[in-house]
Design a binder for these strands. Structure first.
Lengths: 343, 343
DNA sequence: TTGTACGCGTTATCAC
DNA sequence: GTGATAACGCGTACAA
């Protein structure tokens, strides 16, 4: 007999236990101190028997805490964000937080819209990866103003402003390692396919590349930098361009782009890694799927995501919590990098 | 001066407009009928000036409608679900619904836990893709009982029970087409790498394969069926096994598995498509990334997802709405299927 | 149109 | 110290 279960109220529990609602509330929220043990027992018992659980809506209305975190990402279909959001959701669920997910579709107006919407829903915190657009001056000012006005704890994930709380991979250091891998294999003419340079992730990776080259007394000429969008398509365009310019190795700032580079090489009749070495970034599953397994930098997505959650929860709790941090990516050496013929 | 904006209440708006809260509520909810136009204007004006927006929590507390849909998927990091959830979120946002996302991590206990949790939060509807486990008898009974008791509109997505509302790709028909493609190229010894056969998606695809073979007077021997889990790894295992058994073509029930088949072929020194044709399912982006572009069945994820949302919203609205449906996948012929040497 | 009860808890106040 | 009473949070719905 599956009766539709109407909601059990706290009054019913109180009645059953023969105490006041107040008492029930106190007991169930662990503010027992002043209540005699036998009473506590009776209350708990009654609550259990009636399958009582407090209504989050009613509770939130008065406490102004929803136990919900809002996440805004450009596109959950992007494997990087998908993985990150998964980790976040699982990590937050352990702390009894739920997640409202929003896709900005890489449009700044949606960033704003969703942030307002989430604030309107009284979420306890925000995890934000704004659109690339958000990082140009007029837009970032609007974003900052909005967040300042809102008074909701937030952190930036992967894309960020230096002066606001953020969590990300150590882009500079990781790119330094990646470029180092190519240099160590004797490559001296190295092309890079970047993501949007409006994003610190790409800018910092570029800086890392430059540092690595610098240590070899090299510089990165502008015409060996192709600015893309972290997707297969721009990888292909960039790969084509760079190969024509005679690079012996390409560092693609995402695995998707690395895939594009593979495609362009194939199309041009060049072999990887014989004619051109390639290194990617992310270690998304496609790296293990390519005909020539892709060397890449593996982001510790899970660690970053779960630490990011800790950080946010710390701030929600009122403290400063953990401060902004970056974690290094690890080099996963596979078969797409080979000694240069000049080596 | 960005003052922290405390919430504006309906009272303030009422006061400013010189009317009662009731009137404000009526106007703002479009139940104007009985209110003179000038009053409406004054109210709207006041609301605008004060930046008033109704508190969803308070509203939900009384209406028992949250404008939230709960989505439970096994793993948002799976590109198929990522894409689907993205489409759903966007489609629902257009109708002013937000999405709480849960990953069951393919564990049945989590299915139940999350469904209860979402129900506790009074979500207006549920979109469910239960764990594979949920489809074995004792578990499915528990799931059914829970849903029956809950009295919340729900639909199943991709994995389903025939007698409950669902939305999915037409697995049988699509697999029939895929197998037909192989048969049309002269292949007669065809192996399949399936997903979990507990899932109707895999069972129905298998049925489609059998129907196609049947039309050629063939049957599918058990030892040419490898049951996997839709992932690269099982694709590789299956590919290895089937290739050893001398198939001339493999139908992998997911692109990830097709990737695995590619890997196994490579490892065994076989070429695709010369030594073995391969066809996949999903058209996830990896298909366009492989050295030999993968022929595959493209699921109309967006259409299914958005129709699924319509269906759910219809049910939330009280009507029966659209009933369960499936949409056909489309054959995307690329280079991984070639005429059999026996052809 | 509007007053008022109500939804369901939490918290502050007050009496025992 | 214990526990009941009442106000409150913020809207919506119904009767007047």
């Amino acid at each position: 007999m599956s009766e539709k279960r109407a909601r059990v109220t706290i009054r019913e529990v109180a009645q059953r236990a023969g105490v006041s609602q107040t008492t029930v509330s106190l007991v169930l929220n662990g503010k027992d101190a002043s209540i005699p043990v036998p009473t506590r027992e009776r209350v708990r018992e009654a609550a259990r028997e009636l399958h009582y659980s407090t209504d989050p809506l009613a509770r939130a209305l008065v406490t102004r805490r929803t136990n919900i975190v809002g996440i805004v990402v450009p596109d959950i279909a992007n494997p990087f964000f998908a993985q990150a959001v998964r980790c976040m959701q699982v990590a937050l669920a352990e702390r009894r937080y739920d997640v409202i997910l929003c896709n900005s579709e890489e449009r700044f107006e949606n960033d704003l819209r969703y942030i307002r919407l989430l604030a309107g829903r009284s979420v306890d915190g925000l995890i934000l990866t704004p659109s690339a657009e958000a990082f140009s001056p007029p837009e970032s000012a609007r974003l900052r103003a909005l967040l300042a006005q809102l008074d909701i704890p937030y952190i930036f994930f992967d894309r960020y402003f230096e002066d606001m709380p953020w969590a990300a991979v150590d882009n500079e250091g990781s790119a330094y390692l990646a470029a180092g891998e190519l240099l160590a294999h004797g490559h001296r003419v190295i092309g890079v396919v970047t993501g949007p340079l409006a994003l610190n992730s790409s800018r910092n990776r570029l800086a890392g590349v430059r540092r690595a080259l610098g240590e070899y007394g090299l510089i990165l000429p502008d015409d060996l930098i192709f600015e893309g969008r972290y997707d297969v398509e721009t990888g292909q365009l960039g790969g084509e361009l760079l190969l024509k310019r005679g690079v012996s190795a390409v560092f693609a700032f995402s695995d998707m782009q690395a895939c594009g580079v593979y495609a362009s090489a194939r199309r041009m009749g060049k072999r990887i890694p014989e004619d051109c070495s390639v290194i990617g970034f992310d270690d998304s599953f496609c790296s293990s799927v390519l005909d020539v397994p892709l060397s890449t930098m593996r982001q510790p997505v899970q660690e970053i995501a779960s630490q990011a959650c800790n950080m946010l929860l710390g701030r929600i709790g009122g403290g400063q919590g953990i401060s902004s941090f970056s974690l290094p990516a690890r080099l996963i050496a596979r078969a797409s990098v080979k000694n240069s013929e000049n080596a």
